[in-house]
Amino acid sequence: MPYTTEEDGRLNNFAKEPKVYGAEPPDKNQQRNYIILGVAGFLLVAGLVYVAASV
């Protein structure tokens, strides 16, 4: 554990930092799934708005 000592003699304990890695762009299959989920979400919200307006 990385401890540091402050001026007053108190110890400070810092958390371990996670490893950093670069994000990879989605492949064609993931992009298709994102589009399908986006359209399904839009239709769900549009349907809920329609039901709320008709009531």
Rank of each mutant, 00 (worst) to 15 (best):
D27E: 03
V20K: 12
E6M: 11
N29V: 14
R10G: 06
A23I: 08
G41V: 03
P2K: 09
K28F: 15
K16H: 04
T4G: 13
R10Y: 08
A23M: 11
P2F: 10
I36L: 09
S54Q: 15
G9N: 00
N13S: 10
I36D: 05
G22T: 10
E7L: 06
T5L: 15
V55R: 15
A53Q: 10
M1G: 11
M1T: 05
A53V: 15
V45L: 13
N13H: 10
E17I: 01
Q30E: 11
L11D: 06
Y50I: 08
I36V: 15
I35T: 05
Y21K: 13
F14H: 07
G41I: 00
A15D: 07
R32A: 12
L48D: 04
Y3A: 09
G38P: 02
R10W: 05
G38F: 02
L43E: 00
D8G: 00
E17K: 06
D27G: 09
E24L: 12
K19M: 09
G22V: 11
V49C: 13
Y3I: 09
L48C: 07
T4H: 12
L37Y: 08
P2M: 13
A52H: 14
K19P: 07
A46K: 02
A46V: 06
A40N: 00
K28M: 12
L11Q: 15
E7C: 00
E6V: 06
F14W: 04
V20R: 10
V55I: 11
G41K: 01
S54V: 14
G9A: 06
V45N: 00
F42R: 00
V49Q: 02
R10C: 02
N29Q: 15
N13D: 13
I35R: 14
E24R: 15
E24W: 11
N33L: 14
K28R: 11
A52K: 07
K28Y: 12
K19Q: 11
L43Q: 03
P25V: 05
K16E: 11
E7H: 05
T4S: 10
D27Y: 03
Q31F: 05
E24K: 14
V45E: 04
V20F: 10
Q31R: 14
P18V: 04
A46S: 05
F14M: 08
P18K: 00
G9D: 03
E17H: 03
L37W: 08
L37D: 07
P25S: 03
K28Q: 09
G41S: 02
E6N: 13
L44C: 04
F14P: 06
L48K: 04
A46Q: 02
V51T: 12
N13C: 09
G47W: 02
Q30T: 08
K28V: 15
D8A: 04
Y34G: 06
A40C: 05
L48A: 05
A53Y: 10
K19G: 08
V55Y: 12
V55Q: 11
F14Q: 10
